[in-house]
């Protein structure tokens, strides 16, 4: 018993030391959000502001349409999370539990779509969305998620593959159809994984920088993360405002992370009740 306590202590110390570099940029961001513009330019840089400048936050609200940006971000992140959870679990189930001719070929193709750099397909994709009449709308930024995200399909597939085939066989004997096997066995068993998919999709969408700038033509239609780039120009970045905006933008993500984490960790108990 003593030995395991020692191991826990060592683990704690290691994790604690590792946490220092991890939290630095966050502290930097919050501290810069309270600096005056000229304090952000001091050299060598000061980690902490000389005087706390709360006005960065109030002025930010009058400078930029930050409420619109938040609403857009929330809308896109929620839609993408729903879209990706639903579509990726369906598709991953198809790839794991069922056998069909082109399965291996199609799965390899799925992986290939992840390998092509975005830069290579950006122009043709823009032409396509323009053809749909989707430019300067939010559609290009959420509709595709309902048709599966390769990365998340792959992720869910890895977990579905660990679910024993004996469950499927037993369910078949009981007369269950594929749909029932999917939502009565696979979904409950992979609860932590699906929460993770939702969380990561939400955050990836929240932080997606380039897409909104390319597909939308007006600052007010932007998301919070890409909108903040309108505070930085060719010559000068208003880093105090940008960091104040970034601090506000990160808060919902932190809250969501803490909630989702609880679900992920308690996942095993929930599924215990089902078996």
């Amino acid at each position: 018993m003593k030995k395991s306590k020692l191991i826990t202590l060592i683990a704690f110390v290691i994790i604690l030391i590792g946490a220092i570099p991890m939290i630095l940029p966050f502290v930097w961001m919050v501290s810069t959000s309270f600096k005056s513009l000229s304090d952000t330019m001091v050299f060598p840089p000061d980690f902490f502001p000389k005087t706390i400048r709360w006005e960065n936050y109030t002025e930010l609200f009058s400078l930029v349409p930050i409420k619109d940006w938040f609403l857009n971000s929330i809308f896109l992140s929620v839609m993408n999370s729903i879209g990706v959870i639903v579509s990726s679990s369906l598709v991953a189930f198809g790839f794991v539990a069922l056998n069909f001719k082109l399965k291996d070929f199609l799965f390899t193709l799925l992986l290939v779509t992840m390998m092509i750099p975005f830069e290579a397909v950006m122009i043709p994709q823009y032409i396509l969305f323009n053809f749909f009449g989707w430019i300067n709308t939010l559609y290009p930024l959420w509709v595709p998620s309902f048709f599966g995200a390769a990365y998340m399909i792959f992720f869910v597939r890895q977990f579905f593959k660990t679910i024993s085939t004996s469950y499927i066989d037993a369910a078949k004997v009981d007369g269950a159809n594929y749909w029932q096997i999917f939502y009565k066995i696979f979904i409950p068993l992979s609860y932590p994984v699906l929460v993770t998919v939702g969380l990561l999709t939400f955050i990836n969408t929240w932080n997606y920088f380039l897409g909104p700038l390319i597909y939308l033509n007006t600052p007010s239609k932007m998301t919070i993360v890409s909108g903040l780039s309108f505070l930085s120009g060719q010559a000068l970045g208003y880093w105090n405002y940008i960091m104040a905006g970034s601090t506000l933008a990160i808060l919902p993500v932190i809250v969501l992370f803490l909630i989702a984490q609880k679900w992920i960790i308690s996942g095993i108990e929930l599924q215990g009740g089902i078996k």
């Binding site: 300067n136 390319i214 033509n217």
Partner: peptide, 21 residues
């Protein structure tokens, strides 16, 4: 008026020219 930030301007412009838009 349509606007984008400096970093994305020429990329957006090229996309729009290619899309005949």
């Amino acid at each position: 008026l349509q606007s984008t930030s400096w970093g994305a301007y020429f990329q957006t412009l090229q996309n729009r020219i290619a899309a005949n838009n």
